[in-house]
């Protein structure tokens, strides 16, 4: 036990050390960036092997979208009151939802848990790579794969069948892009946080399942938050998960304007930092546990 422990501890300490000791900081940062970019690319390529599954997923996405649209059209037909979102808005909203479904913190992460469970986490710690950053980048690589291979096709095909609105102002599109990137970052940070519980529980299926239901609900993935009763929407506004779906799509639909966009993006950033920080605390706790128990 002891030799392994020292090794792990040395690695953990060494990592911190290296970071402060570097003289040529800019150069090191650039190199680090390069390394992580390579990881992201690797993760992107890793997904390529699930191409057939992706194709099937695309079909499934489209089917769910179709049913959702039928349901909302029927609801809107029966209602005479004015609604905060028009039916065109709703259709666009759900097209975007299905297109970005795979970017949500619901699918990845199993590998992180496996790494922790089978003990290869100790091996990873000996490498001069930050554990959290590594998996963050890995998750992002996965997300970008699905953004292009699932999201884009879903969006384009939907345009043939439905009336999907496209924002006219470049500033809105820009804000949407920023917000979407933040959503992906937040998703990655949340995934790592969820699965780092593998240090404590043998089986993460339960926890990730409960997390999935909370995320699905409060992100506005099933019903746009604008249609929720006031009191519940209020709760959602105070939670981070709206930043995954509702915020970027509300920006896209032009439901947020001017200063509201800035506040929303600011909130997304804050939550992003929160999850990165929280995840880091959890992981460090986990690592120290690992050191104490010797893997």
């Amino acid at each position: 036990m002891s030799s392994q422990t020292t090794k792990v501890r040395a690695a953990v300490v060494g990592l911190g050390w290296r970071r402060f000791k570097c003289r040529d900081r800019m150069k090191s940062l650039y190199l680090t960036f390069h390394v992580y970019l390579a990881f992201a690319r690797k993760s992107f390529q890793k997904q390529m092997q699930y191409r057939v599954a992706n194709l099937a997923g695309l079909t499934t996405n489209f089917f769910f979208l179709l049913v959702q649209v039928f349901v909302y059209i029927a609801f809107y037909k029966a209602s005479t009151e004015p609604q905060p979102l028009s039916i065109d808005d709703i259709i666009t909203y759900f097209v975007l939802c299905q297109a970005s479904l795979m970017l949500m913190p619901l699918w990845g992460g199993r590998e992180i848990a496996d790494t922790i469970k089978n003990g290869s986490v100790a091996l990873q710690l000996t490498k001069p790579v930050d554990f959290q950053t590594y998996w963050f980048v890995d998750e992002c690589g996965r997300a970008y794969y699905y953004l292009f291979m699932r999201g884009l096709p879903t969006f384009l095909i939907s345009n043939i069948f439905f009336k999907v609105t496209i924002p006219q102002q470049p500033s809105v599109l820009l804000a949407f892009a920023v917000s979407m990137v933040l959503a992906i970052f937040m998703s990655a940070a949340i995934t790592i946080t969820i699965f780092s519980t593998a240090f404590w529980t043998l089986d993460t299926t339960g926890i990730s399942g409960i997390a999935a239901s909370v995320i699905t609900f409060f992100s506005g993935m099933l019903v746009p938050i604008a249609l929720w009763p006031e009191w519940l929407a209020h709760i959602a506004r105070w939670l981070p998960f709206e930043g995954l779906i509702d915020v970027p799509f509300s920006i896209y639909l032009g439901k947020l304007t001017g200063i509201e966009i800035w506040i929303a993006i600011g909130k997304q950033m804050a939550w992003c930092l929160f999850f990165i920080g929280f995840g880091r605390v959890l992981l460090n706790r986990g690592f120290s546990r690992l050191v104490i128990q010797g893997g």
């Binding site: 349901v71 609801f75 809107y76 029966a78 209602s79 609604q83 089986d203 299926t205 339960g206 926890i207 990730s208 399942g209 409960i210 999935a212 239901s213 699905t216 609900f217 099933l222 019903v223 249609l227 929720w228 009763p229 519940l232």
Partner: peptide, 26 residues
């Protein structure tokens, strides 16, 4: 037990969403 609970919670939310829609559209 945790998974049983997770399963149930997912499906409760599922129906709650339908209820939300009826709350608005009757």
């Amino acid at each position: 037990i945790v998974e049983l609970f997770a399963q149930a919670s997912i499906s409760v939310i599922d129906f709650f969403m339908i209820a939300l829609l009826f709350n608005r559209f009757k």
